[in-house]
C-alpha cells in the first residue's frame, strides 16, 4: 500500500528561493545621515533589511529591489542604483 505523501514544506524553507535575481535596481545604504529610526527594517516587504546603531544593510540574496526602503527613508540615507550583474 502506498503511504500518503506529506503536503507540507519545512518552516522557512522558502529561503532556498533566492529572489535577489529579480532585481533591476539595488538599495545602497550610505551610512551618513541615518537617525536610527528603524523604518527601513519595518517597511521591507521581504523582511531583508537588518542592522542596528545607525548601520543598516540589506540581504541581496533576496532583495527584489522594490525601492520602498529608499522611498521611505526620511533622511535619504538609502539610494537606489541600477543593478549591474
Amino acid at each position: 500500500m502506498q503511504t500518503t505523501k506529506t503536503l507540507y514544506g519545512e518552516p522557512g524553507s522558502s529561503v532556498q528561493n533566492k529572489t535577489g535575481s529579480w532585481r533591476t535596481e539595488r538599495p545602497v545604504f550610505l551610512h551618513k545621515t541615518c537617525t536610527d529610526c528603524f523604518l527601513c527594517v519595518l517597511v521591507c516587504p521581504d523582511g531583508v533589511v537588518f542592522g542596528s546603531n545607525k548601520i543598516y544593510d540589506v540581504d541581496l540574496d533576496y532583495c527584489k529591489g522594490c525601492g520602498i526602503c529608499a522611498e521611505e527613508c526620511p533622511v535619504k540615507d538609502i539610494v537606489m542604483e541600477r543593478e549591474v550583474k
Binding site: 522558502s14 516587504p45 521581504d46 540574496d61 520602498i68
Partner: peptide, 11 residues
C-alpha cells in the same frame, strides 16, 4: 514570514 516567497516586488 521568511524571504524567498514569490510575492511581487513591493507587495
Amino acid at each position: 514570514v521568511a524571504p524567498g516567497h514569490n510575492a511581487c516586488s513591493g507587495c
